[in-house]
Amino acid sequence: MSTHAPRLNNVFKLAPDTIKAMISVEAAIKASSLEPALLDLVKMRASQINGCAFCLHMHATEARKQGETEMRLYLLNAWRESTLYT
């Protein structure tokens, strides 16, 4: 028996106001002085914590496009213990 929650087929339809708010937050973050590579890692880590496979795939793909290494992506879950992060 699975203990996972059922998948949401269309979160954009189910929570349009929430999605709009997330898009606004994303725009504000992109306008900040934070490095895009760092933002990709933060988003990926949040997706790990949330257990969202769709978001993990999306953020890992974006991080790779920004030049992130595979090893840093693999070790992100244990970033505190790794010397690969500052």
Rank of each mutant, 00 (worst) to 15 (best):
2 S>V: 05
4 H>Y: 13
5 A>P: 12
6 P>F: 04
7 R>T: 02
7 R>Y: 11
8 L>D: 10
9 N>Q: 13
9 N>F: 07
9 N>L: 15
11 V>Q: 03
11 V>I: 15
12 F>P: 00
14 L>A: 05
15 A>S: 00
18 T>H: 07
19 I>A: 07
21 A>G: 00
22 M>C: 10
25 V>A: 02
26 E>G: 01
26 E>T: 01
27 A>K: 10
27 A>R: 04
28 A>S: 07
28 A>V: 06
29 I>N: 01
29 I>A: 02
29 I>E: 05
30 K>D: 00
30 K>T: 08
30 K>S: 07
31 A>F: 02
33 S>Y: 00
33 S>A: 06
35 E>W: 00
36 P>L: 06
36 P>N: 00
37 A>T: 12
39 L>I: 12
39 L>G: 06
40 D>A: 15
40 D>M: 07
40 D>K: 07
41 L>Q: 13
42 V>P: 01
44 M>T: 08
45 R>P: 01
46 A>N: 10
47 S>Q: 08
47 S>V: 00
50 N>V: 04
51 G>D: 03
51 G>V: 07
52 C>R: 10
55 C>F: 11
56 L>V: 10
56 L>F: 02
57 H>F: 11
57 H>G: 09
57 H>S: 14
59 H>W: 10
60 A>I: 09
60 A>W: 05
61 T>R: 14
62 E>T: 14
63 A>K: 09
63 A>D: 02
63 A>M: 09
64 R>Y: 09
64 R>C: 05
67 G>I: 00
68 E>H: 06
68 E>P: 08
68 E>S: 14
69 T>P: 08
69 T>S: 15
73 L>D: 08
73 L>A: 06
73 L>I: 13
76 L>D: 11
78 A>F: 11
79 W>G: 14
80 R>G: 11
80 R>Q: 15
81 E>N: 10
82 S>L: 09
82 S>D: 09
82 S>G: 05
82 S>T: 13
83 T>D: 15
83 T>V: 08
83 T>R: 13
85 Y>E: 10
85 Y>A: 07
86 T>A: 10
